[in-house]
Simulated assay, not measured.
Amino acid sequence: MTPPQASGYVHATALVLGEFGLLLRGPSGAGKSALSIQLVADWRARGAFAALVGDDRVALEARHGRLIARPHPSIRGMIEARGLGLMRVAFEPACVLRAVVDLLASGESPKRYPDADEATTRLSGVTLPRMFENAANVGAAARIAAYIQYVVTN
């Protein structure tokens, strides 16, 4: 049996879209929470399951070659909406992460053709596919949805 390998808490937002666990990382103010709210709303509008796992502080734990995300106990079920403050939302207690989206700082754009070595990231000994996005760019949620479909089918 593979022992769990905890990496502690990371500054990120985790959500589950359908059966797909996604981790959004980025600097403060990059739009992690707002993009998560948009992604969950988009998936639910299509009739698919979608929920927050954790916002701002997410625990990561490697188990049996998978990376599990859990919310921080003191803020589980809460997400920050700028201009509104903390909002209570439905949440899942954990998810298996399938990919990472690294959000860029304001004014930055993803490379048109990313380098192959940037296509993955390693967290707690688990390698996951990764994409870069700017949450402020028009179509960010749609590109992430397309990326999820790409990861699922490849």
Rank of each mutant, 00 (worst) to 15 (best):
2 T>W: 06
3 P>D: 13
6 A>H: 12
7 S>Q: 15
9 Y>T: 10
11 H>M: 14
12 A>I: 03
16 V>R: 14
16 V>D: 00
17 L>A: 10
22 L>N: 09
23 L>M: 12
26 G>H: 11
28 S>I: 08
29 G>C: 02
31 G>A: 13
41 A>E: 14
41 A>P: 02
42 D>G: 03
43 W>Y: 15
44 R>E: 13
45 A>H: 05
48 A>E: 14
48 A>V: 10
48 A>M: 06
49 F>M: 07
54 G>A: 07
60 L>E: 00
61 E>P: 00
63 R>A: 08
64 H>A: 15
68 I>T: 00
69 A>R: 10
72 H>I: 01
86 L>K: 01
87 M>Q: 15
92 E>R: 14
94 A>Q: 14
97 L>D: 06
98 R>K: 15
100 V>Q: 11
101 V>Y: 02
103 L>A: 02
105 A>L: 03
105 A>M: 04
106 S>Q: 12
106 S>V: 02
111 K>H: 11
114 P>A: 09
115 D>K: 13
117 D>Q: 10
117 D>S: 12
117 D>L: 12
121 T>I: 15
122 R>S: 12
125 G>Q: 11
126 V>E: 08
128 L>Y: 11
130 R>G: 08
130 R>W: 00
135 A>D: 03
140 A>I: 04
142 A>F: 06
144 I>H: 08
145 A>P: 01
152 V>K: 15
153 T>L: 09
153 T>V: 06
154 N>D: 06
